[in-house]
Design a protein around this nucleic acid. Sequence first.
DNA 1: TCACTTATTGCAACAATGTTGCGTTAAAGT
DNA 2: ACTTTAACGCAACATTGTTGCAATAAGTGA
Lengths: 127, 127
Amino acid sequence: MSRRQTKSQTAILQLLKKEQVALSHDGITAKLEQEIDRVTIYRILNRFVEDGLAHRIVADDGRQYFAICPEECSHDHKAHDHLHFRCVSCDRVECVPGEVEYSLPAGYKVDNHNIILSGNCNDCSGK
Amino acid sequence: MSRRQTKSQTAILQLLKKEQVALSHDGITAKLEQEIDRVTIYRILNRFVEDGLAHRIVADDGRQYFAICPEECSHDHKAHDHLHFRCVSCDRVECVPGEVEYSLPAGYKVDNHNIILSGNCNDCSGK
DNA sequence: TCACTTATTGCAACAATGTTGCGTTAAAGT
DNA sequence: ACTTTAACGCAACATTGTTGCAATAAGTGA
């Protein structure tokens, strides 16, 4: 029932901590030293999300990206109400700090926020 | 070079106009009277988006949903900055009117907004 | 109205992303 | 060291969306 610490798991966790951006499955594969099976990577990531360690972002390319949760959001890992920016040039997804404000009609219960802006990031918009 | 009017095309357009919610490919298939090939549906939808007739939303289930653009957004069909709500119970995606406010560091150029909240809609949260 | 051009369609095949089943491996507890 | 079972790797599958290509049919002009 309890979690076990494995090499694959710690490697992915370290990677996510080091990178400050959200990574997709294949971004992770590309940056990992060791080879880890595709399925295992997905399972590890899903476990991280389940445990509130990471959050999952579905970007507007339809793919899932994962990022380590900052401390502030550990108390409630369901609603990540900060926004995310996906750069279409360098294909990175980053978390943008700051609140997002919106209004919603009464009666709606929000379980999950998934806010993605896409375009060119600071580095890429100059070129 | 110019567009041609076909039965499939008008059927889908009518459907999207009638439904006030955003529909996915298979939502469209389910509601259509006539049978239209999967590929054709996708191509029609992509054409609508290209022509600024509809906008594409990628929901947090990773799937694409399409909705007819309201008049206001016809002048700029790239940035649909209103938010969308996906109900996980009835599996409908609706456009929520109203502006979304956020702040973004300088140097970022936004091409596209994709803002999805998910949870239970007014109808489903009661039950 | 008929012939012509080519946008649109339908089918098959493919690509990408993510999940499930299952037998094997290896962490953690005793 | 032994046992239990979480985690792994492989194969197979599911879903969503796209591409190539030959056949069809919408618009145009004689």
